[in-house]
Design a protein around this nucleic acid. Structure first.
Lengths: 280, 280
DNA sequence: TGGGGCATAGAATAAACATTCCATCGATGG
DNA sequence: CCATCGATGGAATGTTTATTCTATGCCCCA
C-alpha cells in the first residue's frame, strides 16, 4: 500500500490557477474540460457541491474528484478550500478599496509609474467614450448608416494614426458581410486603389490632426468621382469636412501617439453594427 | 396551529444584516449570542458547516438552525446562501457580468436604434477600461516594459481582429523612436518577416478567441528563435501563453466584430508610453 | 412553593454529499 | 486484428451534514 502524497504545493488561488494553466495542454480530454471550467468559473467551484459543479461543467462527479487528485489534492473538498480562499481574500477590506479608488481617481501623480500611465489612459478613455455620446447626433448616425447601406462598395480611408481605426472598421464590416475596400496605400498605390470608385459606392474617411497628407490629397479626389462621404474628424475646419455628406466631429483629439483612439473606434463599431442591424 | 412563514424578505446580505440588528434586543439569550456572532463573522457562516459555526459561536448546532428559522428561512442552508452572496458580490465582477448588469439597467433597450447601439458600445467600452485596471498587475507592466526596453527591434504580432491593436502599437512605438517590425503577413511573407529576429529582439503578441491560425503558428516559431515574449490575450489557456515571459490576461473578450478592442488598445498604449517614460 | 411555558442541549435521524469501485469504451502498439 | 493500458461514465458506498425530536432546565408568576 502506497502512501499517497497529499501535500499540494498550491495553497493560494493564484498559484493554483497558474498550475492549472501550465498543465492544461497535457491533460486528457475530460480533465482539460474541467481545467477550462475551473479557470472560467472559480466562484462556482468555491461554493458548489461536486454534483453541481459536475453538472455545470458537463462532466461526471467522479471526473471532478479525479481532477482534484490530479492537481495534487486529497479530494475535491481540499481543492475547494483554495477556491474559497479567493472569495475570502476579495471581501472588502475597506482600506484596500480606498487605495485602489484613489489610484483610479488619478490622484497618484507619479506619472512615470507604469500603473499610473495605465490608469491615466484608461480614465481618459472613459471620458472620451462618455463625451462621445454627447457629441454624436442621432440624425447623423441615421444618415451615415443609410448612406453606407446604399453603397455597393464601402471605401475606408484612414492613414497614419487613424489607420488602426480604419483597419478595425474594415474588419467588422467584412465580418458583417459588406464589400469593403481599405485605402491603405500599400505599394504606394493609394490613387490606384481608389480609381475604381463610382458614385454607387461610398467613402468613410477618418483623420485627425495632424492630418495625414495622403488622406488630405485623396479625399477631394474621391469626392470628385462622385462618392458620397462620411467623415470622422476632430474639427469642422478639418480638410476632410468640405464636401462630406455627414461629419462626425470628435473634438479635443490629441495626436494618436498620445491617445488610444477609443472614441473613433467605438463610433465606427457602432456604425458598422448599426448598419447590419437596420437591414435585418 | 399557525402555518409557518418560510418566505424570507431578506434576500440580500445588507437587508438581512439590518434585520438581525433590529431584532437582536428581543431575542432570547442563545439567539442573541448567535446574532452577534453572525454580524461579527459573516464569512464563517458563509463557508462553514452548522457544526463548525456552532462550535465557533459556542452554541449547539440546533441553536444555529433555530436562529435561521427565526430569521424566516427554512433552515441554515437557506440563510447561508445570503451570507454567500456577500462573498460573491465582493469578488470583482467579471467583465461579462458587468455588461449583463448594464443590460439589466435597461439602457440597451431598442437595440436597433443607432443611438442605442452607440450607447451600448460606449458603455461596454467604459466597463472594459475599468475592469482593465483591475486585471492588469503592476508587476507585469514593469516586466513587460523592461523586456521591450532591452530589445533592439520590437516585433509586433497581431492578426485578424487584433490587427488594429497591433497597428496602433506599431504606430505609437515608432513615433516614440523605437525600432519596430509589424508582422502583418503582407504578401504572405509572415515567415520571412520573422526570419531576421534574434534573441536580442523582443516579441509582443496580441490574440483573442478565435485565435488567428497564423498567429498561433508563428508565435512558437518566434519563441524558438529565442525571443523574449509579451502576450496579450483572453485566457491563460490561449495558444500564445505557453513560453511567454509576461502574459496580460484580459478575460471575457468577445469576437472583435462585436467589440471595440478598447481594452487592448489602452493597454498597448500604456506599454508604449510607459516604455518611453522609463528611459528618460 | 409549585406549575406552566418557553428555551436549550444533545442524541437520533434522514438527507446530502464526496468518494470509490468497477465495467466499458477507445486508443495504441505489437 | 488482437492485447493492453488508460480514460471514462455511472452506480454503490460510507461519511458528513443539516435537521428533528425529546427530555431537561430555567424562569416567571400565581
Amino acid at each position: 500500500m502506497t502512501v499517497r502524497q497529499h501535500t499540494s504545493q498550491h495553497e493560494t488561488y493564484e498559484s493554483l490557477r497558474a498550475e492549472i494553466a501550465r498543465r492544461h495542454p497535457r491533460f486528457a480530454d475530460r480533465l482539460k474540460q474541467i481545467a477550462e471550467f475551473a479557470l472560467d468559473h472559480p466562484t462556482e467551484i468555491a461554493l458548489g457541491t461536486v454534483a453541481e459543479v459536475a453538472q455545470r461543467a458537463r462532466v461526471q462527479p467522479s471526473a471532478i474528484v479525479r481532477f482534484a487528485r490530479a492537481m495534487g489534492y486529497g479530494g475535491f473538498t481540499e481543492m475547494q478550500q483554495v477556491f474559497r480562499s479567493r472569495l475570502v481574500a476579495s471581501v472588502a477590506p475597506s482600506y484596500k478599496e480606498r487605495i485602489s479608488g484613489l489610484r483610479r481617481d488619478g490622484r497618484f501623480h507619479d506619472g512615470k509609474n507604469p500603473r499610473a500611465v495605465l490608469t491615466r489612459f484608461a480614465s481618459e478613455g472613459v471620458v472620451a467614450l462618455e463625451s462621445l455620446q454627447d457629441c454624436v447626433r442621432e440624425k447623423d448616425l441615421v444618415r451615415a448608416i443609410a448612406l453606407l447601406g446604399a453603397a455597393q462598395t464601402i471605401y475606408v480611408l484612414g492613414l497614419g494614426g487613424s489607420f488602426p481605426v480604419a483597419a478595425h472598421l474594415t474588419y467588422v464590416l467584412r465580418k458583417l458581410g459588406r464589400r469593403v475596400a481599405i485605402l491603405d496605400g500599400l505599394g504606394s498605390a493609394l490613387g490606384d486603389q481608389a480609381a475604381a470608385a463610382t458614385p454607387k459606392d461610398a467613402l468613410i474617411a477618418i483623420s485627425f490632426r495632424t492630418y495625414n497628407p495622403d488622406t488630405v490629397r485623396l479625399f477631394p479626389a474621391l469626392l470628385a468621382r462622385g462618392l458620397p462621404a462620411v467623415s470622422i474628424t476632430d474639427s469642422l475646419l478639418s480638410p476632410i469636412v468640405e464636401g462630406a455628406d455627414v461629419v462626425f466631429e470628435i473634438p479635443d483629439m490629441p495626436e494618436a501617439a498620445l491617445r488610444t483612439m477609443v472614441g473613433p473606434m467605438c463610433l465606427v463599431q457602432s456604425l458598422a453594427v448599426g448598419l447590419s442591424l437596420t437591414l435585418d
